[in-house]
């Protein structure tokens, strides 16, 4: 399973492509590609995002579902989704309603 992530051009914020379309700043609502065809479609969305100058560094990253929650396989992506592990007062993890846990 893969999701599409990038950083927003104007502020560098880590974002994910939403199941509802558009880029969102929390991983929870990201659209999941479950086969090669869906991956190819998301990949095309990422390339369009670059061309439209909405985002930079778009890439597909591998995830798992843990009790229905999207959890990236790589620690790097878990930290991107939450914030620095030494500063839980910063990043997405510090925002109300965001429970992403990096490590």
């Amino acid at each position: 399973m893969k999701i599409l992530t990038a950083n927003r051009l104007a502020d560098g914020e880590a974002v994910w492509f939403s199941a509802n379309g558009g880029w969102i700043d929390s991983i929870g609502g990201a659209e999941i590609a479950r086969d090669k065809e869906e991956e190819a479609r998301l990949d095309a969305v990422g390339k369009a995002g670059l061309l439209d100058n909405d985002v930079v560094d778009a890439e597909l990253v591998e995830v798992e579902l843990n009790d229905g929650e999207i959890v990236p396989v790589r620690l790097r992506e878990r930290i991107r989704a939450a914030g620095p592990t030494n500063r839980t007062d910063l990043g997405k993890q510090a925002r109300p309603g965001q429970l992403a846990e990096a490590a």
């Binding site: 502020d11 560098g12 991107r80």
Partner: peptide, 28 residues
């Protein structure tokens, strides 16, 4: 010009790096 979409990321990346701007995990 970058924010207005007049130059691409490939064109802009070396320019921002020359001015000390990197892109990291959470932000620039």
């Amino acid at each position: 010009r970058r924010l207005a979409g007049e130059i691409t990321e490939d064109q802009f990346r070396p320019l921002r790096l020359m001015n000390g701007v990197y892109l990291q995990l959470h932000a620039y």
